[in-house]
Design a protein around this nucleic acid. Structure first.
Length: 668
DNA sequence: ATACCTCGAGCTCC
DNA sequence: CTCGAGGTAT
């Protein structure tokens, strides 16, 4: 066969395969059998093997990558991947509608808001970036700001276009949910059983595990699917609504679940009911619905809270409930000495996993439930994840079950327990359980991030007396570690290396790692950025701390008290001697804080900067950006076609600057 | 080959 | 809170 003939057949095969992909994955209407489909792939691979130079990156045979990866690269997200606020019933959904209407200053009799309602698939969220029309990057959500680069794995998901059709924007980013359809999951488990291997428990965990396989050829053999639900910065593609966006995504060849248009809260509730009835038969797990305001031009005005956008919300279907026996209530001592009760349950399968323990939070909760050992309790999973003891079935209570009584002394050190409001606390500073928890906290990911130092190891180190406070970690050597159980040379060397590299962490992480009460990662960042060195922070007085943005009296007092104690100052000194970095690595803004105290809102389309750039610029100069105009707003930056924020600024007599005027003010 | 450990995914409640 | 993957120990 001549080369040009082969080239022709290759092109034709690729087009045919893509059409079948679209029919199967996007339209859910397979047009040929699986065998026929595989036949096409085999034929294409044969031809490509014959003429390797004709292989292109976008060929359906190229979905599978080459050699397994060593590890995943971490990549920053272009726009943070946030989650949505949740509702659980009609009342909360109506309250959301009311908030939207109020946020838009709509009169009572205004027509209903249009919402786009779509199913929320229970899977793993991913971001997909296309460059030059090609799939260039796939990433997990990670912490929302940074995720793992799983490009090679997402490439194997059939139905996901590797190349966008001609005329598509050359740069774009979409987000979607990767999941495992129930049929595929069952088949996979049958295959596992045939091979005498362990079966998987639920499709969600299997999908999540699959995406994190280092060898993409194994991923390719797993039945993953994807539904895309967001086009990042959709308003920049001449799209006006969520429904437009879904049409656009579909035209680009993305598989989507689409969305249904609902006018007002009543129609949303109707949609929720029909979806609630329908979701068991869909062929994949759906844990709720996402409700978004349909028109993009309302988003700016609605803005966002610190955590969620105000123009969207998710509705969670009622969680599955199961009853089981409460076998025991055990107490756990936390880092601060707080003693929390945990329910030990007879294992029961609920919402996809076997639950055997559940937190009871505090003494009040145990009292409220009146949970007694031996009781039959109803368990469900909040948000499909966290097990919760919902209530006690009183008519099943065995005779003689006694109310649960807190012991008088600490389960770890036998010191007397003290009641502070709802909390029961062990106030023995030398309590070993507290030391264990504080070392774990110190090593944890958000703190010093010491790789390889997990719970079991910390327990051993503390019990063997090798670690009496966190500074002892830096005295560990391969030889000393060698005596521990399950600690070979390799593990020891890895751990010592992990500890060594933690010396270079930023001051903010160190401050957080110290475990000062009421100082979380956010508070630690604020004080570290302001004081720059541990020395300066230790010398800070209370009122000075309290004057900082986002630091209130509680945090200020707590920090002050912490460094007032000699034991704590000594600990810091030992860490410093060990070589732990005591300075902020985040260089403070070089710029004069020209915008200090300003609260700025941006509206309309700007010429020189994107919204994110202008926001970064404002923050660099010490200003604050908020989403909506209020009395507190100090000025508005308006681009072309400003929305209702402009009018609101006018009525509130808030100054309005153009982008150029604003830049001039910064001397740029 | 098997057993144990760490990590990260889902992200609610207090 | 539980699961799956990957790595190391036994």
């Amino acid at each position: 066969m001549s080369r040009s003939k082969v080239a022709q057949e290759i092109l034709a095969l690729r087009e045919e395969i893509r059409e079948h992909d679209r029919a199967y994955y996007r339209d859910a209407h397979p047009t040929i059998s699986d065998q026929e489909y595989d036949g096409l792939i085999v034929r294409l691979r044969e031809l490509e093997d014959l003429h390797p130079d004709l292989i292109t990156e976008d060929s359906p045979t190229q979905r599978v990558g080459g050699d397994p990866l060593e590890e995943f690269r971490s990549v920053p997200h272009s726009v943070p991947m946030l989650s949505l606020d949740n509702t659980y019933n009609a009342e909360e959904m109506r309250a959301f509608d009311q908030r939207v209407r109020r946020g838009l200053d709509l009169p009572e009799d205004a027509p209903p808001i249009e919402y786009a309602v779509e199913p929320k698939i229970d899977g793993v969220a991913v971001a997909l970036r296309y460059q030059g029309g090609r799939l260039a990057l796939g990433a997990t959500r990670g912490n929302g700001v940074e995720g793992d680069d799983i490009t090679l794995n997402v490439r194997t998901i059939r139905g996901l276009p590797l190349v966008l059709p001609k005329g598509a924007p050359s740069e774009l980013e979409v987000r979607g949910e990767v999941y495992m359809p129930l049929a595929g999951f069952l088949q996979l488990n049958e295959a596992m059983e045939r091979q005498g291997l362990k079966q998987y428990v639920n499709p969600r965990n299997t999908a999540a595990g699959t995406l994190k396989l280092l060898d993409s050829s194994t991923v390719a053999a797993r039945p993953l699917a994807i539904a895309v639900y967001t086009l990042v910065n959709a308003d920049q593609y001449n799209l006006e609504t969520q429904l437009d966006m879904f049409r656009f995504l579909g035209d680009l060849g993305f598989p989507t679940q689409g969305a249904e248009l609902c006018r007002g809260a009543d129609e949303v509730m109707e949609a929720i009911e029909t979806w609630g009835d329908r979701h068991p038969g869909l062929g994949f797990d759906v844990d709720g619905l996402v409700v978004k305001v349909n028109h993009f031009n309302l988003y700016d005005e609605l803005g966002a809270t610190s955590k969620f956008p105000r123009w969207a919300i998710s509705y969670k279907f009622p969680a599955e409930e199961k009853s089981t026996k409460l076998l025991d209530i055990v107490l756990q001592v936390g880092r601060t000495g707080a003693v929390t009760p945990t329910a030990i349950l007879e294992p029961v399968f609920v919402s996809g996993t076997t639950v055997s323990r559940a937190t009871l939070h505090n003494a009040d909760e145990v009292e409220r439930l009146d949970a007694r050992i031996g009781d039959t309790v109803v368990v469900k999973k909040a948000g499909e994840i966290i097990p919760k003891v919902e209530r006690v079935l009183l008519n099943e209570r065995p005779a003689g079950a006694k109310p649960f009584r807190y012991p008088k002394d600490c389960p770890s050190c036998r010191a007397e327990l003290v009641r502070e409001d709802v909390l029961i606390r062990c106030i023995n500073l030398a309590c070993p359980a507290q030391l264990e928890r504080s070392v774990m906290h110190f090593a944890s990911r958000g703190a010093m991030d010491i790789e390889g130092l997990g719970e079991k190891l910390v327990l051993q180190l503390v019990r063997e007396g090798l670690v009496k406070d966190v500074s002892d970690l830096y005295k560990l050597t391969v030889e000393k570690l060698g005596d521990l159980e399950r600690m070979g040379e390799k593990s020891a060397a890895n751990l010592v290396m992990g500890i060594e590299s933690s010396k270079q962490q930023d001051l903010a992480r160190l401050v957080y790692a110290l475990g000062i009460r009421h100082v979380g990662s956010q508070g630690a960042k604020v004080v570290a950025r302001h004081y720059q060195t541990m020395e300066a922070l230790m010398g800070a007085d209370e009122s000075e701390l309290e004057a900082l943005d986002e630091v209130g009296p509680v945090i200020a007092a707590s920090i002050h008290e912490f460094f007032n104690r000699k034991a704590n100052r000594d600990l810091v000194a030992r860490l410093q001697t060990a070589g732990v970095n005591m300075e902020s690595l985040e260089t403070p803004s070089e710029e004069e804080p020209l915008l200090a105290g300003e609260i700025i809102v941006v509206t309309g389309t700007l010429e020189k900067h994107s919204r994110n750039e202008i926001k970064a610029l404002i923050e660099k100069f010490g200003g604050k950006v908020t989403g909506s105009v209020s009395k507190k707003t100090t000025f508005l930056i308006a681009g072309s076609e400003p929305g209702s924020k402009y009018d609101k600024a006018q009525t509130l007599k808030i100054p309005v600057l153009s982008e150029a005027e604003f830049l001039r003010r910064l001397g740029q």
